[in-house]
Design a protein around this nucleic acid. Structure first.
Lengths: 120, 120
DNA sequence: GCTAGAACCTACTAAAAGGTAAGTGTGAGA
DNA sequence: TCTCACACTTACCTTTTAGTAGGTTCTAGC
């Protein structure tokens, strides 16, 4: 899915934060370096496989920095890069919008799906 | 995919603008009421089925307003609602971020995929 | 010795999203 | 009459994304 060649920058942004869990990961990592297991606990409901996959994606995109402490048992933490911080800053208004409109959107999603379930 | 019950508002926002084409649709509609065929031409590369699906989603979420002129051959246009405009405003910084970082992200996506293609 | 926890990996499966190709009814222009 | 454009709909297929269930290597604690 190459969405990096359109007039609208949102496509670029969505290649970075698209997916079910990436925004949540970013949200829970912005407070500072966070360990893998800590992210998993905070996010909740995510499988390890998916979490690793998404973290790797974000590292490849240079949004997150992976810091392996090279000890046994393993200790690894993830933190925002400066680039990642610019992204999080750009994300803030959208996050606020979502928070302000959670109930509105939630009820509309619910009514839309119940309507289609009833075949309307 | 219910993402409307998390501490982070981004999930709410992504239920609205998630998907391959929605941001692009929003982008091309923000200038004023736009006809279906005009949106299709502007977006480019989208199939009619998907465009209709996405437009319907956005109408259900009360982000867009569908105006059917009830004439034959059919004339229908889509415009942002006031609610949709608050969303577009919240989206602006992210859009700017994407535009500013298109080349950076694009090259990183490219190098990441070529790396995996080579089995690295 | 046995278990738990750390941070992963691998195969397989399920669900969601997107895409293709066809068809609908109508009227204006060639 | 024939075709085109309009705004869709339907059935079917492919791709992408997410989830499940197992395994690995190592150490500390019981």
């Amino acid at each position: 899915m190459d969405r990096t060649n359109t007039p609208c920058g949102l496509d670029v942004a969505l290649t970075v934060i698209g997916g079910k869990w990436k925004p949540l990961i970013l949200y829970h990592v912005q407070s500072g370096p966070t360990r893998f297991s800590e992210i998993r606990r905070r996010v909740g409901g995510i499988s390890e496989k998916i979490l690793i996959q998404q973290l790797r994606d974000l590292v490849k995109l240079k949004v997150l920095l992976r810091h392996d402490h090279h000890c046994v048992p393993p200790v690894v933490d993830y933190a925002l890069t400066p680039f990642g911080e610019t992204l999080v800053k750009a994300l803030a208004p959208l996050c606020a919008w979502g928070t302000a409109n959670r109930d509105v959107v939630g009820s509309m999603v619910a009514s839309a799906s119940s309507a289609t379930e009833r075949g309307i």
